[in-house]
């Protein structure tokens, strides 16, 4: 896998103003480098800023300090429109609660991100989405409504949806949080394999040490910083 640099965080901070006027420093100085094919696991206790970090990585939020680079481009202060474009093209999200669109079939859910694509990706969205669902083992459940599927199947739909536009980075926020241990392990294996095969980097944020253990590089988020836990020799 290539060592192409995808994401670089240098001294990233996020501070919010509380209603009483005081500042709350959620992230103080986060440094992180993510390359293509990486699997990074970030663990941390509740309230340590895991989700805030994920929002920053996915360009859903802006840092209040430091710099954030996407493929060598400084994106710290880009417009909402540009952020949306990068997000649509390069980021796939997998949420704890699956966040599937209600009232839509498995296929329609996977097709949904392709509605924001253009050209071939948009016009051939049905074929692309069906192939993606087939890849996660749900090729026979295209027309199933998510509410009638198991938690594991729903998360597989979410994974297919996150990967359907071939993103360069997949951000998983507690991806096994709503699943039992066995199903969670199976889903994580699938997520790891599917992202690795697509050449994307996977960043998993979790409080579950077992899930984090699957990552090739692991960090602990505490006091607003990332602390390396263990790192594979050759990333």
């Amino acid at each position: 896998m290539s060592s192409e640099e995808l994401l670089r965080l240098t001294g990233v901070a996020r501070t919010v103003e509380l209603p009483d006027g005081d500042d709350l420093h959620i992230l103080t100085s986060v440094d992180l480098l993510v390359r293509r094919g990486d699997h990074v696991g970030i663990v941390g206790r509740s309230g340590t800023g895991k989700s805030t970090l994920l929002n920053l990585l996915g360009l859903l939020d802006r840092p209040t300090g430091g710099t954030l680079e996407w493929a060598g481009r400084n994106v710290t202060d880009i417009s909402g429109r540009q952020a949306a474009r990068i997000r649509g093209r390069d980021v796939g999200f997998v949420f704890q609660q699956f966040n599937l669109l209600p009232g839509r079939t498995a296929l329609e859910n996977v097709m949904a991100p392709l509605l924001y694509a253009s050209g071939k990706e948009f016009w051939q969205r049905r074929r692309i989405a069906a192939a993606m669902l087939d890849q996660v083992g749900l090729g026979d459940r295209l027309d199933a409504m998510p509410q009638f599927l198991s938690g594991g199947e729903q998360q597989r739909i979410a994974i297919a949806r996150a990967l359907v536009r071939r993103p360069t980075v997949v951000l998983a926020d507690e991806p096994t949080g709503a699943l039992d241990v066995e199903t969670g392990a199976m889903v994580m294996k699938l997520l790891d394999q599917a992202t690795y095969e697509s050449g994307a980097a996977l960043i998993t944020i979790t409080h579950d040490q077992n899930v984090a253990a699957l990552a090739r590089r692991r960090f602990r988020l505490a006091e607003g910083r990332l602390h390396p836990l263990a790192e594979e020799a050759a990333v």
Binding site: G58, L60, A84, R85, R87, V91, L101, Y116
Partner: peptide, 16 residues
């Protein structure tokens, strides 16, 4: 609102 948030995560702009 949640659905709109999900769509924004797919790259939907405010205008869209």
């Amino acid at each position: 609102i949640r659905e709109i948030g999900i769509r924004r995560s797919f790259g939907a702009t405010t205008g869209r």
